[in-house]
Write a protein that binds this DNA or RNA. Structure first.
Lengths: 340, 340
DNA sequence: GTGAAAGCGCTAACAG
DNA sequence: CTGTTAGCGCTTTCAC
């Protein structure tokens, strides 16, 4: 376990100067074939690997982007992440990922750490859309792309899914099936997705002249547990809804667990649509209808935008991608009039 | 968007030397109260953040660990990752994550990159248990902890789940229900989990004097698609098995999809147990029995082991944790004799 | 308590 | 083609 070899050691062994070694390890050309081979051999022999730290100090760039997500356990994010990584690897960029557990405080630490490490850019689904804690990034001129949740305080490129449209379509579908008592399990109204999905719900009801009934609007927190609790509240209502719209994947799962526990019959007694695809959707009976998002594409586009900013340096206008979600009709929405 | 401030700028503004600034940002004490406050104010004003690169060059440590997983889309890994991150944060360590897509080549790149960046240690579920490509880590004396899959070439701390025991128990349960025609959908036999889960299956059959029937041993690759295909092969057999054991979560999902498509009735026509918990388990009818692993604990222990190595530096013996999986009996295994 | 100065390992100008 | 050299921003002796 000898000391790590450095460029000096390589130069000495290959009997050249460190400048020549540097040329070789950076593929800059202009080195005689034999010399290069001698150096390569020395590198191999020593097991030399260049220090990113030293390199970064000179170059002021790391070829690394940071990705910040609120909850790595939510399957949505690994899928987005996969899209990001794939594109990043193509451009020879490296990705580092951290999860905030929805804590703005942790998020701030992570941001600071990313800056310390000199990331060239960051892709973030923030735990605090206000964005105060991102001031640092902005000050340092580090490009940021917001995914899934926008950032109020600063102008940053954004890739969102049309949440409002998605939930509108879902609720519209329910209405066209004859439902009027349609409940929504909301996400936090302080987040873009939480708010917009509620707005889509509201708009659909308005367009079809159905009065919004506050009892049918339950506030969850995007977690599985709150899906369970929300569903129970709905069940306990004197005037139960005939359909439920859940604002995200985890709450959908919670909702299904509650339905099962309460013996509230999916499809026949209560129709359902959820935002976001879930693994369980096609295994339930009836199969779940959902609003699906193109996770992989979201990640790819996010990296694309970020990469353009990193490369161009110059002023680019703020770009905003709005991807369309897809309503997947399966079996969990029955005609309201249908006999039970 | 001015240039990033450095320690010089801070020193100048606070009218002290850079040495004093350094003392303050590292909380080394020995600085007069007023001086310190002046410096802190300057830091605040400038929005100064110290460069990790420069720091690393001196200190030779990064307080960062690298985590390498084969497939971030497999829900097992985010869960393990969550355990790692949690413990790491407690010790003020930072975590960087990369996914190899099961490619040893990509894995090697990642390893090299991690070394370049000077990670203090790495936690890895390798795509190639042989471990040749980890030679570099070994040479540089960087501590490694293997998770879920061991590494042949070098002695490294390892945290595994007792795969053999888990699958033994699963198959035993099937046998005790009266099944004799028990099929297994294997994972790659080149991986520890793939092999051991097969060995547990084999052992159980032996112990109960059931001859192993090659037709019932199907080779999958741990992916969902191969779960589908394997199940179809089983279905097409003249002498269909009465029970199936699936070696991992994704293949379980594939298997369920195939069962549904083939209209092969789970529970009544064919019993089932899968290795690893899956979201869909409790939503299927009948509910799926599974062998569950403690993902969060795996991550926590892995970090623990790694951290000890990083701190102690001295020689520690190779440690090997073997966690017990838990057989969760639900409803997908019926008595073989039971009328259909 | 504080400052001056010596590098850490590398890249990039400049010289030859 | 190849070598010399000046930093990059920081930590850490060693003085004072």
């Amino acid at each position: 376990m000898e000391a790590k070899p450095n460029i000096q050691d390589v130069a000495k062994l290959a009997d050249v100067s460190i400048a020549t070694v540097s040329r070789v390890i950076n593929n800059q050309g202009g080195v005689r074939r034999v010399t290069e081979e001698r150096i390569l051999k020395a590198i191999e022999e020593l097991g030399y690997i260049r220090s990113a730290a030293a390199r970064t100090m000179k170059r002021k760039e790391t070829n690394t982007i940071g990705v910040i997500v609120p909850d790595i356990k939510n399957p949505f994010f690994p899928l987005v992440m996969a899209g990001i990584e794939q594109k990043a690897r193509e451009k020879e960029f490296f990705t580092i990922l951290s999860s905030t557990n929805e804590s703005p405080k942790v998020e701030e630490e992570i941001v600071k750490n990313f800056i310390e490490r000199g990331v060239d850019g960051v892709i973030i689904t923030t735990a605090n859309e206000n964005g105060d804690h991102l001031k640092l990034l902005h000050e340092q001129g580090i490009p940021v792309v917001a995914v899934d949740r926008s950032i109020k305080k600063f102008e940053v490129d954004t890739v969102l899914v049309d949440n409002k449209k998605g939930s509108y379509q879902a609720v519209q579908h329910l209405i066209l099936q004859g439902h009027e008592k349609i409940a929504i399990i909301c996400g936090p109204q302080s987040t873009t997705p939480g708010l917009e999905r509620f707005l889509g719900y509201k708009k659909a009801l308005e367009d079809y002249n159905i009065e919004l009934d506050e009892r049918y609007v339950i506030h969850g927190d995007f977690g599985e547990q709150s899906g369970i609790e929300s569903t129970k509240k709905l069940f306990e209502l004197d005037d139960q809804p005939t359909a439920i719209f859940s604002s995200n994947n985890l709450m959908t799962i919670g909702c299904m667990k509650a339905l099962d526990e309460l013996n509230w019959k999916l499809g026949s007694e209560v129709s359902f649509i959820g935002f976001d695809e879930v693994d369980i959707a096609t295994f339930l009976n009836p199969k779940l209808s959902v609003v699906a998002r193109p996770m992989n594409a979201i990640g790819e586009i996010a990296f694309q935008l970020l990469h353009e900013r990193i490369s161009f340096k110059g002023a680019l206008p703020k770009r905003e991608y709005l991807l369309s979600p897809e309503l997947k009709i399966r079996e969990s929405c029955r005609l309201a009039s249908q006999p039970m």
